[in-house]
C-alpha cells in the first residue's frame, strides 16, 4: 500500500517550525511588553501560519517504519478527528457570542490537527483500540 507522505526526516522539521512558532508567540504574549517588536500583527500572523504549516508537515511525515498498520491508524485518527471537529464546530456555533456566520476557523483547524496527532499515537500504541476493529 502506497501513501503520499513526506519522508521521516521531515517530521523533525515540522516539529521545529511548530515549536519555534509557539515559543515566539508565548514569549511575546507573556514576557515581552505590548509595544515589543514581536507583538505586532505581522509577527502573530507569521507565527500562526508557521504553527499550522509545522503541524501539517509533522502529521504528513512518515513514521520510521511506515507499514499498513501505521496507515490504518492514520486513517482511523483522521476519521476520529474529522467527526470530533464537526461536533466541536457545532458546539462553538451554538456557544458563539457575536453574530458572525463563521466561528474562529483557526481554533477549529488547530483542534483537528492536535486531536489527530493525539489519536494517531494512541492507536499506534494500541491504547485506543477496541477488540472488534
Amino acid at each position: 500500500m502506497k501513501s503520499n507522505t513526506l519522508p521521516h526526516s521531515a517530521k523533525k522539521i515540522g516539529l521545529i517550525i511548530f515549536l519555534t512558532a509557539i515559543t515566539i508567540q508565548l514569549t511575546a504574549y507573556f514576557l515581552l511588553p505590548e509595544d515589543s517588536a514581536f507583538n505586532t500583527i505581522q509577527i502573530t500572523r507569521v507565527c500562526k501560519v508557521a504553527f499550522f504549516v509545522g503541524l501539517l508537515i509533522f502529521i504528513r511525515s512518515a513514521e520510521k517504519k511506515e507499514d499498513e498498520y501505521v496507515q490504518y491508524c492514520r486513517y482511523r485518527a483522521y476519521q476520529f478527528a474529522f467527526i470530533a471537529t464537526i461536533i466541536y464546530g457545532i458546539f462553538r456555533t451554538y456557544k458563539q457570542v457575536n453574530n458572525s456566520f463563521f466561528t474562529t476557523i483557526d481554533m477549529i483547524i488547530a483542534y483537528q490537527l492536535l486531536l489527530y496527532i493525539v489519536f494517531f499515537h494512541l492507536y499506534k500504541a494500541g491504547i485506543a483500540n477496541d477488540e472488534n476493529s
Binding site: 500500500m1 507499514d67 499498513e68 498498520y69 494500541g126 483500540n129 477488540e131 476493529s133
Partner: peptide, 22 residues
C-alpha cells in the same frame, strides 16, 4: 514480513486484521 513489531502485536491481539498481502 517487513512490518513493525507493533503491527504483529496488534494482529496477534486481534486489534488489527491484516491485508491479504500481509
Amino acid at each position: 514480513t517487513g512490518v513493525s513489531r507493533q503491527s504483529i502485536i496488534s494482529i496477534e491481539k486481534g486489534h488489527y486484521i491484516p491485508t491479504t498481502v500481509l
